[in-house]
Computed example of a mutant assay.
Amino acid sequence: MRYDFVPMPHRKPLRWPNGARIAMLITTNLEYWDQVKDTDKPFYPGGPSIITDMLPGNVYDNPNWTWREYGHRVGVWRMFETFERAGVPTSCTMNAKMGLERRAVVQHAVDRGWEIVAHNYVQTDLLSNYQFDIEGERQVIRETLKVYREVVGKPAKGWLSCSLRSTPNTPDILAEEGLTFFTDLLNDDQPYLMHCEGGRRMVSIPYTSEVNDFTVFLRQGKDVNGAFSVFKEQFDELYREGASSGRLMNIGLHPHVIGQPFRIRALRDFVDYAKTFRDVWWTTREEIAAWYLEHHAEHIG
């Protein structure tokens, strides 16, 4: 994994299309977990559990599995209604098993032209398991991309690893497979180029673990007003900074978390607030990557 260290003061101003101050991404993570796994080790489902006593993977964990499935059955539809009512897109991530097991959810997003980002094969098989097995990692990625093409109807352009657990080999493998953006890294408020094997280039479009419903609601214990305050504070500061050099804002969301009735208002209120600003680019990662590949020299030479 190779990219240049260029601190913010050493960059030229980033000028988004149409003079936008912020490129806005709201990420809806569409994720599937198997009920059991053939192991007696603790079963890592991705993200915090609603009941924290860990069970072996070969023992069915009913409260944690059905809590997450609530997002597929109920929570995601509250989120989708919010985006449709406001007329803004969401950038959806999808692991392959979600496309196979919960096709109706994915098809709803595809029918509306929303972005789908490849997100591993299944939520419980992290790429970090393949730190010392590059061929095993390559096989997982290829199987994921194969299912993506079958479900979405076109090749994937970008990747988010489950729980952001990638390896130093991941960008090189993705670039080999023709992907153009990678969204695991947490280290910036602007996109930048990554240098991959064979002279290939990818665009890093940073994710966030801070402005994320897991962090805000489950780790920090904020209520709906507290979560809205976090989203708003992030937006306001990036909007202020974006007057001199454009910024990227992402919110990471999970349907079984923010899709709960007592939390969804934080999303609705934030979308309504951000829509009052005209110089916001409601966009997709694919659009950002395509634009940045053409304009990166104007930003970081």
Rank of each mutant, 00 (worst) to 15 (best):
D272T: 09
E177M: 10
E286H: 07
A156W: 04
Y273W: 06
T90H: 09
D223N: 14
E210Y: 12
G158L: 01
Y192V: 01
W77I: 00
E177C: 09
W291G: 03
R78D: 09
L100C: 02
D53A: 13
V140H: 08
W159K: 04
L100Q: 13
R138F: 04
R278T: 09
V216L: 12
G136M: 04
E241P: 01
V140N: 03
N225G: 14
H256L: 02
Y3F: 15
P155W: 09
N62A: 15
V88T: 12
D184G: 11
Y3G: 00
F217C: 03
H72N: 13
S49Y: 15
K41D: 15
V6C: 10
F262H: 15
N169W: 08
R201K: 13
Y207V: 14
R263Q: 06
R278P: 05
Q139P: 00
D236K: 06
P191V: 10
R278C: 00
G136Y: 01
D189R: 03
V211R: 06
D236P: 08
F235I: 08
S244T: 13
G47L: 07
L293H: 08
P191H: 08
V147D: 03
N120I: 10
W281D: 06
I116N: 07
H295M: 01
L185I: 11
Q35P: 05
A23I: 12
F132Q: 14
E177F: 02
P45I: 01
R268P: 00
M54W: 15
G99C: 07
M54H: 13
V59H: 11
P255A: 11
N250Y: 00
E143K: 15
Q220I: 02
S49Q: 14
S128N: 11
F181I: 09
G136S: 04
D269E: 08
G99V: 05
G136R: 08
E150L: 05
E143Q: 15
V211E: 10
V216C: 09
G46F: 11
W33P: 04
L174M: 05
I173K: 10
L55R: 14
S161N: 03
G19L: 12
P255T: 12
A297P: 00
G221A: 00
A175W: 13
Q123T: 07
V105H: 07
